[in-house]
Design a protein around this nucleic acid. Sequence first.
DNA 1: CATTCGTGGTC
DNA 2: TGACCAAGAAT
Length: 314
Amino acid sequence: MTAPTKPPHNGPANSPSVSPLGETAGDLHAPVIDWFEEHARDLPWRRPEAGPWGVMVSEFMLQQTPVNRVLPVYEQWLARWPRPADLAADAPGEAVRAWGRLGYPRRALRLHGAAVAITERHDGDVPTDHAQLLALPGIGEYTAAAVASFAYGQRHAVLDTNVRRVFARAVTGVQYPPNATTAAERRLARALLPDDEHTASRWAAASMELGALICTAKNETCQRCPIAAQCAWRLAGKPDHEGPPRRGQTYAGTDRQVRGRLLAVLREAHAPVPQSALDRMWHEPVQRARALDGLVADGLVEPLPGGLYRLPLA
DNA sequence: CATTCGTGGTC
DNA sequence: TGACCAAGAAT
């Protein structure tokens, strides 16, 4: 928590300065981090005993899935596979089954693959290096930065949907960030990153938590926001989002729904399932076949001789 | 850069 | 009640 010192500068508070982010950054860190110290949720992957593996597992599960639904699966997962090597020694299909209804089951497969890679290439320890994390299956820019920052206290810009929204509002003054992450957002995130490593990792967690609890997509509660007084969007009168609508995700009738139904059958079954049982899950044969083929192609389903299917053993 | 990929809760 | 949203990654 570096106490920000205001640069000597005479103009009114909102006048353009030589270093536009200089004041902004300094004014945001301390309030947000202090707020975090007091209001952070006590989540299992934030406890010291979680360790890097616990942090990594949580990050996989939290990709596009709400905290409340992750919690029970996370606990069971770590109880069953307390180290990467434990998961790597089990069949990938077991990971898919244990994933349950978290959604996007390819994440389970990738987490298993990451555990195998960690066991083979990193002596069973979650790598500390950002580039090595990024090389693991299922780990992209966000997750690599998150694991390095949360598990190892390193200084990285951790730019998830929560942080993007906080920056869009507090700094840029708009209601929502762009659909896809832009270079400008990455630049801003780096510019706002505290110099000190420890402060930077606290800032990453704190700004994310602020977006998750206060600066939410809908029904934001500016009354409880530690930086409401400096929020560009609020000061501008909270103008509505302009530009292209943020794409809605339809689900009913899509291949995703069909895949979900098929995989649910295989998750519940503990013996190979005949195709006839899968056929009952969707009426339209072309889409049904396409969904099943997709699952096989993704490695989520293993076809056996005789028209039988099961979760993959290897 | 746009799509695909699950699932369930909320207003 | 249906649209929107939830700690993204891979292609």
